[in-house]
């Protein structure tokens, strides 16, 4: 049935058409709850990361208070250190707050890098096809076959020799994550491009005489990236886990260069047996919360983008009536 009926919805313009905002307006019930929860957690995470210098009582590598005395190692939560201190003598609260900044940096760089490269490769691969497409897809599949963390470790060692500064550390982590993510973007964009390529409007652009580059950029690309917001959110949470995993295994960032949750968890392993809970719980909770928040956003975006999974408000009934049940 054609979409153009007189009852077509009024056109939505401006900021209301932006990806997440549109879905938020569209959602109802449980799906809305999930999306809102995810957005709140993600928003808190973003705020914490951006405002870390103001929120954190101490620096991430600070070992002494203003009075010049050391904090001391493994101090239980107190007024001076609400979440205690680590085995290395850092303030846990400060490390957790500063860690958000590192995590955000890694996510942004990793997602940006993998989107740019992945989308570009996917577009070229899907549009032109042929031997280039074959090679790219085989390489992508080969990367899939590796355990991602192992690949990230190899990349981290190659890039930075394993240990490094804040910029270098984030970049190393981000690049190693990128290597793992590019195949995902490539495959998703490629399959969309292959679908869009055969649509009549692309043929009509060819008949008009548009060049391949113009068709790819103006017609195909913008119609092929609908699913990207979803993949970005899912990859963001995966990026945090990979970064934390790298840090936990000792391939992350030096504690004096930046705060990193995975590193702190690694150092707190021996504390757990000694009954020192505060060094491990808070970085752990931070990781779980951020991953949860971002995943909730991603999952609800996924459901909302699929008309079959999206729940809607019931039709208003004019008279007492019997609702039809779905066909078995």
């Amino acid at each position: 049935m054609s979409a153009a009926d007189p009852l077509a919805p009024p056109r939505v313009r401006g900021w209301k058409r932006l990806p997440v905002v549109r879905q938020l307006r569209q959602s109802v019930g449980l799906q809305r709850g999930m999306l809102v929860t995810g957005l709140v957690i993600t928003g808190l995470f973003l705020l914490t990361a951006l405002l870390a210098p103001f929120l954190a009582p101490y620096g991430y590598a600070q070992l002494q208070g203003a009075d010049g005395r050391n904090f001391g190692a493994q101090v239980p939560p107190s007024a001076a250190h609400p979440l205690g201190t680590t085995v290395g003598g850092f303030d846990v609260l400060s490390r957790v707050i500063w860690g958000a900044q590192t995590a955000l940096g890694a996510i942004v760089v990793a997602v940006l890098l993998s989107i740019v490269v992945g989308v570009l490769l996917g577009l070229v691969s899907g549009y032109f096809g042929g031997w280039l497409d074959r090679i790219l897809v085989v390489v992508a599949d080969a990367i899939y076959a590796f355990p991602t963390l192992l690949l990230a470790i190899v990349a981290a060692i190659v890039i930075s020799g394993g240990q490094s500064s804040l910029g270098g550390g984030i970049l190393a982590a981000a690049i190693s994550i990128t290597v793992v993510f590019i195949p995902q973007y490539l495959r998703v964009v490629r399959s969309e491009v292959v679908r869009v390529k055969s649509e009549a409007f692309v043929e009509s652009a060819r008949v008009i005489g548009s060049s391949s580059v113009r068709i790819m950029v103006r017609h195909v690309l913008r119609n092929s990236i609908r699913t990207l917001p979803l993949i970005i959110t899912l990859n963001a949470s995966e990026a945090i886990l990979t970064l934390a995993g790298l840090g936990f295994l000792g391939f992350g960032i030096q504690p004096t260069k930046a705060a990193e949750w995975g590193y702190d968890l690694n150092k707190s392993v021996s504390d757990v047996a000694a009954g020192i809970w505060w060094t491990s719980v808070f970085p752990g909770v931070a990781i779980v919360l951020v991953v949860l928040g971002v995943t909730l956003v991603g999952e609800s975006l996924n459901d909302l983008s699929d008309p079959r999974l999206r729940s809607r408000r019931r039709a208003r009934r004019a008279a007492p009536a019997v609702a039809t049940e779905p066909a078995p």
């Binding site: 809607r312 019931r314 039709a315 009934r317 004019a318 008279a319 007492p320 009536a321 019997v322 609702a323 039809t324 049940e325 779905p326 066909a327």
Partner: peptide
């Protein structure tokens, strides 16, 4: 409607 093959979103009277 004769086969009641309408989707869940339909409301009939």
């Amino acid at each position: 409607t004769i086969l009641r093959l309408l989707p869940e979103t339909a409301l009939t009277s």
